[in-house]
Design a protein around this nucleic acid. Sequence first.
DNA 1: AATGAATGATACCCAAATGGTATCATTCAT
DNA 2: ATGAATGATACCATTTGGGTATCATTCATT
Lengths: 131, 131
Amino acid sequence: MKILNRDVDYAVRALVLMARNDRPATPVAGMREEVRVSGPFLRKIMQKLQRSGFVHSVKGKGGGFALARDPGNIRLGELVSALQGGIRLNDCVSGGKLCAFHSACKLRGRLASMEGRLLEELAAITVKDLA
Amino acid sequence: MKILNRDVDYAVRALVLMARNDRPATPVAGMREEVRVSGPFLRKIMQKLQRSGFVHSVKGKGGGFALARDPGNIRLGELVSALQGGIRLNDCVSGGKLCAFHSACKLRGRLASMEGRLLEELAAITVKDLA
DNA sequence: AATGAATGATACCCAAATGGTATCATTCAT
DNA sequence: ATGAATGATACCATTTGGGTATCATTCATT
Ligand code: FES
Ligand code: FES
């Protein structure tokens, strides 16, 4: 039961870094040291963040990445949704492999609300909180 | 972000089944139909449950598995711990790959307490509840 | 004692997800 | 032109999850 995968982990570090020293553009080469990850991998993550609208990018010399949104409004829950996909619950529910008690089952609903609460808690944490 | 894996899923179904028709011993062959899973796989899971003390087993002809504990006291949280292992949080914490802000990081504690709450919620659900 | 129904233990295998690298194209300041 | 930067994408390697196969052991029945 791992809550955050690597992508989210590194993304958080990078975003926090950018939130701290608010520069017009930070290249990957200027972050990979502190984030403790290889350049190419961090770059791939940053590109995902760019596509999801968390950061914007500037190509060419002097370019790099910068926050596209107020760090106080970048919520962990959104990062999780963007970088490690949605909810799957258990296979009985999402995979269509129903068990014999399906109609009377009290489990599905409970799991759904649990996952909901989890995401709420994640949504309560912003990049600013962590900077 | 999947809460329950297959093992737990099938285990719950089997335990609920046993709680319903309280027989002295149910063989795997008598459960695999309703649980909707292959015999060998269910058997492997049942063996795990036996090793963890949730059920006891009787070998030989007429044997099988039976609940070793009151179904009202078999909690989902325990099943998760026994069948899909403990907590890993993110790699910054569990993997020892600390990031640059480790000492000041507010994330680890939050994740830990979130996971704790999740397990509490799971612990509130018993096999009896689901039967 | 022999048989067959059952679990115990363990090794193995396959597929999917995760984590990570490599390559080439594109943009842009100098 | 050059070189520093990202965009896009294909590829690879490791781990995990899900599942099968096999042989050993136990025990009720005959
Ligand atoms: S576990 Fe199958 S319906 Fe709930
Ligand atoms: S994410 Fe590294 S110390 Fe918190």
